[in-house]
Design a protein around this nucleic acid. Structure first.
Length: 138
RNA sequence: UGAGCAGAUCGGGUGGUCGCGACAGGAUCUUCGAAAGAGGCCUGUUGAGGAAAGUCCGGGCUUCGUAGGGCAGGGUGCUGGGUAACGCCCAGUGAGGGAGACCUUAAGGCUAGUGCCACAGAGAGAUACCGCCGUAGCCGCUUGAAAGCGGAUGCGGUAAGGGUGCAAAGGUGCGGUAAGAGCGCACCAGCAGUCAGGUGACUGACUGGCUCGGUAAACCCCACCCGAAGCAAGACCGAAUAGGGGAGGAAUGAAGCUGCCCGCUGACCUCCCGGGUAGGUCGCAUCAGGCAUCGGGUAACCGAUGUCGCAGAUAAAUGACCACCUCGCGAUGUUUUCGUAUCGUAUGACAGAACCCGGCUUACAGAUCUGCUCAGCUG
RNA sequence: UGGGGAAUCGUCUAAUGGUAGGACUGCAGACUCUGGAUCUGCCUGUGAGGGUUCGAAUCCUUCUUCCCCAA
């Protein structure tokens, strides 16, 4: 990478993958449905990570989902905020382009603390990266 | 000190690191752009509730409809007031509950009409089953005869007693009578009228004839109120694809209805127009606003003055981590107990704004304040 | 977010305010060498609280749960 490019990279934050920002969120119900239907998933008792490769996408996007059965509005919001915090903390581990993700919380995730969710999330991500490498080899 | 009643307030605090939404400003570094500007960047400010909930009422606002009135349908239902309005609030009245502070109350009209009151019971707008009493003839007993006693039957009186039932035609007592009955009297309850007080619901006094079941959260009657739908309302911009309208060319017109003529439909290309989907922008937060003081009012509330500016998302912004403090809770140690030490714990209640307000209802760990009642003890 | 509707045995459904009925299922018995079919009997219910009424599945009210529509 040239010095010019690095300057540009440092100053322009739009190049970075900041998944807490709005433009990296999945917004439309249709997009969620396509990810569920055509994507691959990695599951644990607490969380499920769906992913779908998008070849022409400049930025990866991620959506969060908590079922209505999981609890009241307060608990659902809390879980969603924790998931968003997880993604922000481990932003560098996900590819910054070419994928749509959906992170779905199961009912067991309601009672879990942030640290427990963090460990399960990291294992999910490592499994996802392992799958990526396998796919690239083929 | 204990038990309780009513009302009001709060719903952890301080600080730090990283991060999110909105608004304002800055710089002109960078991306897009012809520019204006937008995004990124930097700085600052600000960011959930008492119920934000349920969606049970009422209003604003928007679109549609509408001359006016009525019917239908729905709602409310003691009186007076408050309010933008309400099924809400305040004050009062009646009824019920509590020892009391106080609480509860859909509480107009069955004397406008209709319906219903199962089972039981003789009878549930009407009654005589068992009874009680009178009377008529008959039978039996007794007797010299009459009278008397008993029995069944017919006719009549009665609503005392029995029984049924949630409820049986005012209740209790005395008189009265063949037996009874408000038939008469006293008290009580109810009804009607007159007078007095009150704006009124109603209350009090007197008089009267003595009386006429319950049910309207049954139909209904009476009084008052109500147009419908909802911010995903509505307004504006508007891609792709398909389709619509117009003009011109093709055109001295392809093809079809049809063998011919008229007539009708009308292939392909270019330009223009409007509707409208995806999507986007606005609507979108300055208010029937909060707080303080003063004045009016018993109060709800109203008026005046001053002051404050207090969320605005749209897969939906408040989170993660750390330190300390305070109250509570739990565990452990010590102690007869009071207590005290250490550790853990804000996962330590209910719960997340979605167009905006006024109420109601429901959920809620814990803490605080004010007034009042009852009981016990002490002075 | 807004609007609309429903709740009756394990399931599907009836029931003017007056004993909650029927079908299927389940259990027991009879019949049969055994099973099925058939017959007989039994079990099991008004979503929760409060009110009106002599009496509520039903009327009124407050909650709970579920479903549908608008996208």
């Amino acid at each position: 990478m040239s010095t010019q490019g690095r300057d540009r990279h440092e100053r322009d934050a739009s190049w970075l993958f900041l998944p807490q920002r709005k433009e990296h969120h999945l917004r439309r119900n249709k997009e969620f449905q396509t990810v569920y239907r055509q994507g691959r998933f990695f599951a644990s008792p607490d969380l499920v990570l769906y992913c779908l490769p998008q070849e022409d996408a400049q930025k990866s996007r991620i959506g969060y989902s908590v079922a209505r059965k999981a609890g009241s509005a307060v608990t659902r919001n809390r879980v969603k905020r924790r998931m968003r915090e997880l993604v922000r903390h481990h932003a560098g581990k996900l590819p910054s382009s070419g994928y749509d993700f959906v992170l779905l919380a199961r009912q067991a995730a309601v009672d879990k603390s942030f640290q427990v969710l963090e460990t399960t999330y990291t294992t999910l991500i490592s499994r996802f990266l392992h799958w990526c490498n396998q796919a690239r080899r083929h």
